[in-house]
């Protein structure tokens, strides 16, 4: 390290970053707290000269609000359903990929593809796949139930109204789960495969000498040695899950529901709705609640991980 007599130089180099961070990162932290505790804060009203009293009214209003509980429910369901499914699938795929030689690189690339997509754009493809096009039993113009329903009918099932008018909440959520899992796989596979490739081969050789069964090798060697990566993937999965928003817009549009159906709005969506309606106090309160929930879930995960992860 160079003992610099020109300390100002370092500060000069850092100045663009520091100035921008002060305006767009540090100030927001304080301002969010301030706005959350000013009853009914709105920026336009504040500019108009209105003053706001200090209080916890925003939090009370947010929690009282029926929509908020709905958003919380939707977020929680999506989170709890998608994280385990995508983690287990990603683990199986990563282990399978790690055990083969030919085609490994090609398959690895294919499994990474969903990552380099636009979640809104591919959401529209999923919507097209699940969509019923036109009214099926009207007119001579043959119309389709959508490729997913075609596949279900091919295997002898009954077609389901997934996302169109009159579809059920369960069907909507199912479509979302499928899409979110599909979207979450590449990152998890990448991290887990990286972890697998760094496990010392000697453990497996020892298991081979002992004639250990494949499944036992998976549960007794692979998973424990992979546990730091698994923990990482699960925690980031939960954090991402609690921030789910644009994937729903991709499939259902910015109304975030099937026509006439129950809203699939999430916590993040709630924050942005309040924000766009100049109810910043309420938006801040909701964002802080979201932050605390994420914090608690992460802490619980950490506690669980401390017990089960072998570093």
């Amino acid at each position: 390290m160079v003992e610099s007599r020109h300390q100002w130089k370092a500060w000069l180099y850092l100045s663009p970053a520091i100035i921008l961070l002060l305006i767009f990162t540090v100030w927001p932290i304080f301002n969010t707290l301030r706005m959350a505790f000013l009853d009914g804060y709105g920026n336009m009203a504040a500019i108009g000269g209105r003053t706001f009293e200090f209080g916890i009214d925003n939090f009370v209003k947010v929690i009282d609000y029926k929509d908020f509980l709905l958003c919380l429910k939707n977020t929680a369901i999506l989170c709890v359903a998608t994280v385990p499914i995508s983690t287990i699938l990603a683990l199986l795929i990563a282990v399978a990929l790690n055990s083969i030689k030919p085609l490994q690189k090609t398959l690895q690339t294919i499994f990474f593809l969903p990552y380099v997509t636009n979640s809104i754009a591919i959401g529209m493809v999923f919507a097209a796949m699940f969509n019923i096009v036109g009214l099926r039993d009207g007119g001579t113009n043959a119309q389709t139930w959508g490729i997913i329903n075609n596949a279900i009918e091919f295997f002898g099932g009954e077609p389901i109204n997934w996302i169109n008018a009159g579809s059920t909440y369960t069907a909507n959520i199912f479509v979302m789960i499928v899409y979110i899992v599909w979207n979450a796989l590449p990152f998890k596979i990448l991290i887990l495969l990286g972890g697998l490739q760094s496990i010392n081969k000697q453990y497996y050789d020892a298991a081979k000498v002992d004639g250990t069964r494949k499944f036992r090798v998976l549960t007794r060697i692979t998973v424990p040695l992979l546990s730091p990566m698994l923990a990482y993937v699960i925690i980031t999965g939960f954090i991402g899950g609690f921030k789910e928003y644009s994937s729903i817009i991709g499939i259902f549009g910015d109304k975030m529901s099937a026509p006439g159906g129950e809203s699939l709005n999430t916590m993040v969506g709630f924050v942005y709705d309040a924000l766009a309606r100049d109810r910043q106090g309420r938006a801040c309160a909701a964002a802080l609640i979201l932050f605390v929930i994420i914090l608690i879930v992460t802490l619980i995960n950490n506690k669980f991980i401390k017990k089960h992860v072998h570093y």
Binding site: F24, P28, I29, N31, T32, V271, L275, L290, F291
Partner: peptide, 8 residues
């Protein structure tokens, strides 16, 4: 989380 910054 980024949402906290977005509002301000």
């Amino acid at each position: 989380p980024g949402e906290l910054f977005t509002i301000t």
